[in-house]
């Protein structure tokens, strides 16, 4: 038995499928594909799949990562082909490799947040840039302190590692941004986008968010 790390894309309509649902989806895919996966022991065995980093709803990704265990000598290349023959449209395995880093080393994700403004795109570009370069963008987070529920103010600007705002050829505003995403701290890009739009008052036709890199604390690709 050996461990395998699998990178896959989750694009298009699959952004509406929650992380919880991914568990069920993957266990069905490995069954259909006949992948020699290790099953958990116990009264109700099921395929063991460990998703390293939950992806929020309404977010696409080019770099989702999961670890599984394989019970025979199927090669990484064969695994990739088996998965790709049975994954639903919008999902594709891009890489199968032996695990290197520990899942807890994951610290940052890089995203493209693409805003389709409903109105003047240059105005949107200016407002978004100004807000992100400003001092604060406050959201209220509901937290539990012991048994009490408390509201905690979080300044998202302080959480951003770095960003770059640009205009795309079709007049959309692209925010290329690095946010913490790991076991210690995570900022949901959707939450940031909602706060940003609310604070700037920018009207949009749509927003799409794409995770494109997963990194460790030194901003190196997580392997």
């Amino acid at each position: 038995m050996r461990s395998v790390r699998i990178w896959y894309e989750k694009l298009g309509k699959l952004q509406y499928i929650s992380h919880l649902d991914m568990n069920r989806l993957m266990s069905k895919v490995v069954r259909r594909a006949g992948i020699p996966i290790w099953y958990t022991e116990g009264f109700n065995p099921h395929p063991y799949v460990n998703f390293l980093l939950p992806l929020p709803l309404f977010t696409q990704s080019k770099c989702e990562i999961m670890d599984i265990k394989i019970t025979d000598d199927t090669t990484n290349g064969e695994l990739k082909d088996k998965f790709n023959a049975f994954l639903p449209d919008g999902m594709r395995v891009t890489k199968v490799a032996d695990p290197w880093g520990k899942p807890t080393e994951i610290a940052f994700s890089q995203y493209d947040i693409v805003i389709d403004p409903d109105g003047d795109h240059e105005d949107c570009f200016m407002k978004v840039s100004e807000c992100l370069m400003g001092e604060e963008l406050i959201i209220i987070k509901k937290q539990k302190q012991g048994k009490r529920k408390i509201d905690k103010e979080v300044n998202l600007i302080e959480e951003i590692h770095s960003f770059y705002v640009s205009m795309t050829q079709d007049n959309r505003v692209n925010i290329d941004i690095i946010l913490p995403s790991g076991t210690v701290k995570t900022v949901n890009p959707r939450l940031l986008t909602d706060a940003l739009l609310k604070s700037t008052g920018v009207e949009v036709r749509g927003v799409s968010i794409m995770r494109k890199r997963v990194m460790n604390a030194n901003l190196e690709d997580f392997e």
């Binding site: 298009g12 309509k13 699959l14 509406y16 499928i17 929650s18 649902d21 709803l57 309404f58 639903p88 449209d89 919008g90």
Partner: peptide
């Protein structure tokens, strides 16, 4: 939202 987007 997954109720409305199909692609299953």
């Amino acid at each position: 939202p997954g109720r409305y987007t199909g692609g299953e």
